[in-house]
Design a protein around this nucleic acid. Structure first.
Lengths: 158, 158
DNA sequence: ATTGACTGTTATGTTGCATAGCATTATTTT
DNA sequence: AAAATAATGCTATGCAACATAACAGTCAAT
Protein backbone atom coordinates (compact mmCIF):
# COMPACT_ATOMS: atom_id res chain seq x y z
CA UNK A 1 0.00 0.00 0.00
CA UNK A 2 1.00 3.58 -0.40
CA UNK A 3 1.39 3.97 3.34
CA UNK A 4 3.87 1.14 3.53
CA UNK A 5 5.87 2.33 0.60
CA UNK A 6 6.06 5.82 1.98
CA UNK A 7 7.08 4.54 5.36
CA UNK A 8 9.78 2.43 3.83
CA UNK A 9 10.96 5.32 1.70
CA UNK A 10 11.28 7.47 4.75
CA UNK A 11 13.11 4.87 6.73
CA UNK A 12 15.65 4.45 3.99
CA UNK A 13 16.18 8.18 3.73
CA UNK A 14 14.59 8.49 0.29
CA UNK A 15 11.83 10.57 1.75
CA UNK A 16 10.45 11.98 -1.48
CA UNK A 17 7.19 10.47 -2.67
CA UNK A 18 7.31 8.93 -6.08
CA UNK A 19 4.24 10.37 -7.73
CA UNK A 20 2.24 13.55 -7.85
CA UNK A 21 -0.72 11.62 -6.47
CA UNK A 22 1.27 10.79 -3.33
CA UNK A 23 1.52 14.46 -2.36
CA UNK A 24 -0.97 15.54 0.24
CA UNK A 25 -0.63 19.10 -1.01
CA UNK A 26 -1.87 18.08 -4.44
CA UNK A 27 -5.02 16.57 -3.01
CA UNK A 28 -5.45 19.51 -0.67
CA UNK A 29 -5.44 21.93 -3.55
CA UNK A 30 -7.76 19.85 -5.70
CA UNK A 31 -10.22 19.30 -2.86
CA UNK A 32 -10.14 22.93 -1.81
CA UNK A 33 -10.66 24.17 -5.35
CA UNK A 34 -13.52 21.76 -5.79
CA UNK A 35 -15.07 22.92 -2.55
CA UNK A 36 -14.70 26.60 -3.42
CA UNK A 37 -16.44 26.06 -6.73
CA UNK A 38 -19.40 24.44 -5.06
CA UNK A 39 -19.46 26.82 -2.13
CA UNK A 40 -19.44 29.93 -4.27
CA UNK A 41 -22.08 28.42 -6.51
CA UNK A 42 -24.23 27.68 -3.48
CA UNK A 43 -23.77 31.21 -2.18
CA UNK A 44 -24.62 32.74 -5.53
CA UNK A 45 -28.24 32.69 -4.41
CA UNK A 46 -27.26 34.99 -1.58
CA UNK A 47 -25.19 37.23 -3.84
CA UNK A 48 -22.06 36.85 -1.74
CA UNK A 49 -18.84 34.85 -1.87
CA UNK A 50 -17.09 32.65 0.60
CA UNK A 51 -14.75 35.41 1.71
CA UNK A 52 -17.64 37.69 2.57
CA UNK A 53 -19.36 34.86 4.38
CA UNK A 54 -16.27 34.16 6.46
CA UNK A 55 -16.04 37.81 7.45
CA UNK A 56 -19.74 38.04 8.27
CA UNK A 57 -19.60 34.86 10.33
CA UNK A 58 -16.57 36.17 12.19
CA UNK A 59 -18.59 39.25 13.09
CA UNK A 60 -21.69 37.35 14.17
CA UNK A 61 -19.61 34.89 16.16
CA UNK A 62 -17.52 37.63 17.73
CA UNK A 63 -19.68 40.72 18.13
CA UNK A 64 -17.50 43.75 18.65
CA UNK A 65 -14.45 42.51 16.76
CA UNK A 66 -12.41 45.05 14.86
CA UNK A 67 -11.42 44.76 11.23
CA UNK A 68 -7.80 44.17 12.18
CA UNK A 69 -8.81 41.36 14.50
CA UNK A 70 -10.83 39.71 11.75
CA UNK A 71 -7.78 39.90 9.54
CA UNK A 72 -5.70 38.15 12.14
CA UNK A 73 -8.35 35.50 12.70
CA UNK A 74 -8.88 34.80 9.00
CA UNK A 75 -5.28 35.45 8.04
CA UNK A 76 -6.04 38.07 5.46
CA UNK A 77 -4.51 41.43 4.67
CA UNK A 78 -5.98 44.58 6.23
CA UNK A 79 -6.03 46.16 2.79
CA UNK A 80 -8.22 43.42 1.40
CA UNK A 81 -10.95 43.46 4.01
CA UNK A 82 -11.99 47.02 3.21
CA UNK A 83 -14.03 46.18 0.13
CA UNK A 84 -15.59 43.17 1.83
CA UNK A 85 -16.72 45.25 4.79
CA UNK A 86 -18.02 47.96 2.49
CA UNK A 87 -20.12 45.37 0.70
CA UNK A 88 -21.49 43.84 3.90
CA UNK A 89 -22.14 47.27 5.34
CA UNK A 90 -23.99 48.45 2.23
CA UNK A 91 -26.36 45.53 2.75
CA UNK A 92 -26.92 46.51 6.32
CA UNK A 93 -25.47 43.29 7.72
CA UNK A 94 -23.36 44.92 10.43
CA UNK A 95 -22.78 48.28 12.10
CA UNK A 96 -19.59 50.10 12.99
CA UNK A 97 -19.31 51.56 16.45
CA UNK A 98 -16.51 53.69 17.80
CA UNK A 99 -14.41 52.00 20.45
CA UNK A 100 -14.91 53.86 23.73
CA UNK A 101 -11.26 53.81 24.68
CA UNK A 102 -9.45 53.79 21.33
CA UNK A 103 -10.42 56.12 18.54
CA UNK A 104 -8.53 54.13 15.94
CA UNK A 105 -10.74 51.11 16.33
CA UNK A 106 -14.19 50.48 14.91
CA UNK A 107 -16.08 47.76 16.72
CA UNK A 108 -18.28 45.72 14.39
CA UNK A 109 -21.66 44.40 15.49
CA UNK A 110 -24.02 42.26 13.45
CA UNK A 111 -27.51 43.58 12.73
CA UNK A 112 -30.54 41.34 12.97
CA UNK A 113 -30.47 41.12 9.20
CA UNK A 114 -26.81 40.19 9.39
CA UNK A 115 -27.53 37.33 11.75
CA UNK A 116 -30.33 36.10 9.52
CA UNK A 117 -28.14 36.29 6.45
CA UNK A 118 -25.37 34.44 8.27
CA UNK A 119 -27.78 31.65 9.15
CA UNK A 120 -29.07 31.54 5.63
CA UNK A 121 -25.59 31.25 4.18
CA UNK A 122 -24.69 28.56 6.69
CA UNK A 123 -27.64 26.49 5.57
CA UNK A 124 -26.69 26.93 1.91
CA UNK A 125 -23.12 25.92 2.67
CA UNK A 126 -24.31 23.09 4.82
CA UNK A 127 -26.26 21.65 1.92
CA UNK A 128 -23.25 22.03 -0.34
CA UNK A 129 -20.95 20.29 2.11
CA UNK A 130 -23.44 17.52 2.62
CA UNK A 131 -23.27 16.78 -1.10
CA UNK A 132 -19.51 17.16 -1.24
CA UNK A 133 -18.92 14.88 1.70
CA UNK A 134 -21.47 12.25 0.78
CA UNK A 135 -18.69 9.70 0.34
CA UNK A 136 -17.52 10.09 3.93
CA UNK A 137 -19.12 8.95 7.17
CA UNK A 138 -19.81 11.49 9.88
CA UNK A 139 -16.95 10.09 11.91
CA UNK A 140 -14.64 10.46 8.93
CA UNK A 141 -15.71 14.06 8.46
CA UNK A 142 -14.79 14.80 12.03
CA UNK A 143 -11.46 13.10 11.51
CA UNK A 144 -10.85 15.09 8.36
CA UNK A 145 -11.71 18.38 10.04
CA UNK A 146 -9.46 17.53 12.93
CA UNK A 147 -6.49 16.68 10.70
CA UNK A 148 -6.91 19.74 8.53
CA UNK A 149 -7.00 21.94 11.61
CA UNK A 150 -3.78 20.34 12.82
CA UNK A 151 -2.12 21.18 9.52
CA UNK A 152 -2.94 24.85 9.29
CA UNK A 153 -2.74 25.62 12.95
CA UNK A 154 0.90 24.68 12.74
CA UNK A 155 1.54 28.01 11.07
CA UNK A 156 2.59 29.71 14.26
CA UNK A 157 -0.76 30.33 15.88
CA UNK A 158 -4.12 29.81 14.27
CA UNK B 1 -18.28 16.14 20.59
CA UNK B 2 -18.72 18.12 17.44
CA UNK B 3 -19.55 14.95 15.55
CA UNK B 4 -22.42 14.18 17.83
CA UNK B 5 -23.82 17.67 17.62
CA UNK B 6 -23.59 17.65 13.86
CA UNK B 7 -25.21 14.26 13.67
CA UNK B 8 -28.01 15.39 15.90
CA UNK B 9 -28.42 18.56 13.89
CA UNK B 10 -28.72 16.52 10.73
CA UNK B 11 -31.18 14.12 12.23
CA UNK B 12 -33.40 16.96 13.34
CA UNK B 13 -33.23 18.57 9.93
CA UNK B 14 -31.24 21.60 11.08
CA UNK B 15 -28.41 20.52 8.88
CA UNK B 16 -26.42 23.76 8.91
CA UNK B 17 -23.33 23.80 11.09
CA UNK B 18 -23.34 26.43 13.75
CA UNK B 19 -19.89 27.91 13.39
CA UNK B 20 -17.39 28.79 10.72
CA UNK B 21 -15.00 26.34 12.33
CA UNK B 22 -17.41 23.50 11.73
CA UNK B 23 -17.18 23.89 7.97
CA UNK B 24 -14.84 21.44 6.29
CA UNK B 25 -14.43 23.88 3.44
CA UNK B 26 -13.02 26.47 5.77
CA UNK B 27 -10.35 24.12 7.00
CA UNK B 28 -9.71 22.89 3.47
CA UNK B 29 -8.98 26.39 2.29
CA UNK B 30 -6.81 27.27 5.25
CA UNK B 31 -4.83 24.04 5.03
CA UNK B 32 -4.41 24.33 1.29
CA UNK B 33 -3.30 27.95 1.48
CA UNK B 34 -0.82 27.06 4.19
CA UNK B 35 0.51 24.20 2.12
CA UNK B 36 0.84 26.32 -1.00
CA UNK B 37 2.83 28.90 0.92
CA UNK B 38 5.26 26.32 2.13
CA UNK B 39 5.39 24.40 -1.10
CA UNK B 40 6.13 27.45 -3.22
CA UNK B 41 8.71 28.58 -0.71
CA UNK B 42 10.36 25.17 -0.88
CA UNK B 43 10.34 25.27 -4.67
CA UNK B 44 11.80 28.75 -4.77
CA UNK B 45 15.22 27.13 -4.72
CA UNK B 46 14.30 25.42 -7.98
CA UNK B 47 12.90 28.62 -9.48
CA UNK B 48 9.53 27.07 -10.23
CA UNK B 49 6.08 27.06 -8.68
CA UNK B 50 3.72 24.29 -7.74
CA UNK B 51 1.74 24.62 -10.96
CA UNK B 52 4.85 24.11 -13.08
CA UNK B 53 5.86 21.19 -10.93
CA UNK B 54 2.50 19.53 -11.40
CA UNK B 55 2.76 19.91 -15.16
CA UNK B 56 6.32 18.63 -15.24
CA UNK B 57 5.43 15.65 -13.08
CA UNK B 58 2.49 14.88 -15.31
CA UNK B 59 4.87 14.78 -18.25
CA UNK B 60 7.48 12.62 -16.55
CA UNK B 61 4.81 10.26 -15.24
CA UNK B 62 3.03 10.10 -18.60
CA UNK B 63 5.61 10.46 -21.36
CA UNK B 64 3.92 11.40 -24.58
CA UNK B 65 0.94 13.22 -23.08
CA UNK B 66 -0.43 16.17 -24.95
CA UNK B 67 -1.06 19.59 -23.48
CA UNK B 68 -4.81 19.10 -23.69
CA UNK B 69 -4.52 15.80 -21.82
CA UNK B 70 -2.51 17.45 -19.07
CA UNK B 71 -5.23 20.06 -18.79
CA UNK B 72 -7.84 17.37 -18.34
CA UNK B 73 -5.72 15.52 -15.80
CA UNK B 74 -4.91 18.61 -13.75
CA UNK B 75 -8.23 20.29 -14.40
CA UNK B 76 -6.78 23.46 -15.81
CA UNK B 77 -7.66 25.60 -18.79
CA UNK B 78 -5.89 25.02 -22.10
CA UNK B 79 -5.20 28.74 -22.27
CA UNK B 80 -3.34 28.70 -18.97
CA UNK B 81 -0.94 25.88 -19.66
CA UNK B 82 0.75 27.67 -22.55
CA UNK B 83 2.96 29.90 -20.42
CA UNK B 84 3.82 27.04 -18.09
CA UNK B 85 4.93 24.83 -20.98
CA UNK B 86 6.90 27.69 -22.49
CA UNK B 87 8.75 28.10 -19.20
CA UNK B 88 9.47 24.40 -18.82
CA UNK B 89 10.53 24.15 -22.43
CA UNK B 90 12.88 27.12 -22.18
CA UNK B 91 14.65 25.25 -19.39
CA UNK B 92 14.98 22.18 -21.53
CA UNK B 93 12.87 20.02 -19.24
CA UNK B 94 10.78 18.45 -21.99
CA UNK B 95 10.55 18.16 -25.76
CA UNK B 96 7.63 18.48 -28.14
CA UNK B 97 7.22 15.84 -30.79
CA UNK B 98 4.66 15.79 -33.55
CA UNK B 99 2.03 13.12 -33.20
CA UNK B 100 2.45 10.65 -36.08
CA UNK B 101 -1.24 10.37 -36.74
CA UNK B 102 -2.64 13.74 -35.74
CA UNK B 103 -1.01 16.97 -36.75
CA UNK B 104 -2.90 18.99 -34.17
CA UNK B 105 -1.26 17.22 -31.28
CA UNK B 106 2.18 17.71 -29.81
CA UNK B 107 3.39 14.79 -27.73
CA UNK B 108 5.48 15.89 -24.75
CA UNK B 109 8.45 13.86 -23.55
CA UNK B 110 10.65 14.61 -20.55
CA UNK B 111 14.35 15.15 -21.10
CA UNK B 112 16.95 13.66 -18.77
CA UNK B 113 17.25 17.07 -17.20
CA UNK B 114 13.50 17.17 -16.83
CA UNK B 115 13.46 13.89 -14.97
CA UNK B 116 16.27 15.07 -12.70
CA UNK B 117 14.48 18.32 -12.01
CA UNK B 118 11.26 16.46 -11.27
CA UNK B 119 13.05 14.28 -8.74
CA UNK B 120 14.71 17.29 -7.22
CA UNK B 121 11.41 19.09 -6.81
CA UNK B 122 9.81 16.00 -5.35
CA UNK B 123 12.49 15.84 -2.68
CA UNK B 124 12.02 19.52 -1.87
CA UNK B 125 8.27 19.07 -1.62
CA UNK B 126 8.74 15.89 0.36
CA UNK B 127 10.74 17.77 2.96
CA UNK B 128 8.11 20.48 3.09
CA UNK B 129 5.29 18.00 3.54
CA UNK B 130 7.22 16.17 6.20
CA UNK B 131 7.35 19.38 8.22
CA UNK B 132 3.75 20.28 7.48
CA UNK B 133 2.44 16.86 8.46
CA UNK B 134 4.62 16.38 11.51
CA UNK B 135 1.52 16.35 13.71
CA UNK B 136 0.03 13.37 11.90
CA UNK B 137 1.04 9.73 11.94
CA UNK B 138 1.82 7.97 8.68
CA UNK B 139 -1.46 6.11 8.91
CA UNK B 140 -3.30 9.37 9.40
CA UNK B 141 -1.60 10.87 6.37
CA UNK B 142 -2.79 7.97 4.27
CA UNK B 143 -6.26 8.43 5.66
CA UNK B 144 -6.19 12.13 4.90
CA UNK B 145 -4.98 11.57 1.35
CA UNK B 146 -7.66 8.98 0.81
CA UNK B 147 -10.45 11.23 2.07
CA UNK B 148 -9.29 14.24 0.08
CA UNK B 149 -9.20 12.13 -3.05
CA UNK B 150 -12.75 10.99 -2.40
CA UNK B 151 -13.86 14.61 -2.15
CA UNK B 152 -12.41 15.95 -5.37
CA UNK B 153 -12.89 12.84 -7.43
CA UNK B 154 -16.58 13.30 -6.90
CA UNK B 155 -16.52 16.09 -9.44
CA UNK B 156 -17.66 13.91 -12.29
CA UNK B 157 -14.49 12.02 -13.09
CA UNK B 158 -11.06 12.78 -11.66
C1' DA C 1 8.31 64.83 23.62
C1' DT C 2 9.73 62.14 20.44
C1' DT C 3 9.79 57.55 18.84
C1' DG C 4 7.51 53.55 17.64
C1' DA C 5 3.42 50.85 16.87
C1' DC C 6 -1.41 50.09 15.48
C1' DT C 7 -5.84 51.21 12.80
C1' DG C 8 -8.39 51.86 8.73
C1' DT C 9 -7.62 53.09 4.11
C1' DT C 10 -5.99 53.98 -0.91
C1' DA C 11 -3.23 52.67 -4.58
C1' DT C 12 -0.88 49.25 -7.01
C1' DG C 13 0.94 44.92 -8.63
C1' DT C 14 1.03 39.87 -9.15
C1' DT C 15 -0.88 35.50 -9.68
C1' DG C 16 -4.52 32.10 -10.51
C1' DC C 17 -8.36 31.11 -12.88
C1' DA C 18 -12.02 31.61 -16.46
C1' DT C 19 -14.11 33.09 -21.13
C1' DA C 20 -14.08 34.20 -26.02
C1' DG C 21 -12.21 33.73 -30.16
C1' DC C 22 -8.96 32.07 -33.88
C1' DA C 23 -6.43 29.08 -37.38
C1' DT C 24 -5.36 24.54 -38.19
C1' DT C 25 -6.40 19.84 -38.45
C1' DA C 26 -9.61 15.63 -37.73
C1' DT C 27 -13.84 13.49 -37.49
C1' DT C 28 -18.47 12.87 -38.41
C1' DT C 29 -22.58 13.42 -41.06
C1' DT C 30 -24.89 13.94 -45.10
C1' DA D 1 -17.01 14.42 -51.66
C1' DA D 2 -18.82 18.24 -49.13
C1' DA D 3 -20.31 20.25 -45.13
C1' DA D 4 -20.96 20.49 -40.45
C1' DT D 5 -18.89 19.42 -35.98
C1' DA D 6 -15.27 19.05 -32.90
C1' DA D 7 -10.44 19.05 -31.02
C1' DT D 8 -5.78 21.20 -30.61
C1' DG D 9 -2.62 24.86 -29.47
C1' DC D 10 -2.72 29.59 -28.89
C1' DT D 11 -3.73 34.96 -28.07
C1' DA D 12 -6.13 38.33 -25.79
C1' DT D 13 -8.68 39.72 -22.01
C1' DG D 14 -11.07 40.08 -17.62
C1' DC D 15 -11.95 39.11 -12.81
C1' DA D 16 -10.98 37.69 -8.30
C1' DA D 17 -7.62 36.40 -4.71
C1' DC D 18 -3.70 37.77 -2.60
C1' DA D 19 0.33 40.69 -1.37
C1' DT D 20 3.18 45.19 -0.73
C1' DA D 21 3.87 50.08 0.09
C1' DA D 22 2.49 54.10 1.82
C1' DC D 23 -0.57 57.37 4.31
C1' DA D 24 -2.99 60.09 8.23
C1' DG D 25 -4.81 59.58 12.62
C1' DT D 26 -4.37 57.70 17.14
C1' DC D 27 -2.25 55.52 20.94
C1' DA D 28 1.72 53.67 23.88
C1' DA D 29 6.43 53.79 25.60
C1' DT D 30 10.67 55.67 26.64
Amino acid sequence: MSGESLKKAQETGAESPLQLRDLIGYHLKRASAWDLHGANAALEAAGLRTVSMSVLLTITENPGVSAAEICRILRMQRANIVAVLAELESRGLFLREADPGDNRIQRLFPTAKGREEAQHMLSLIGAHEEKMLAGLTLAERDELRRMLAIIWREDGEG
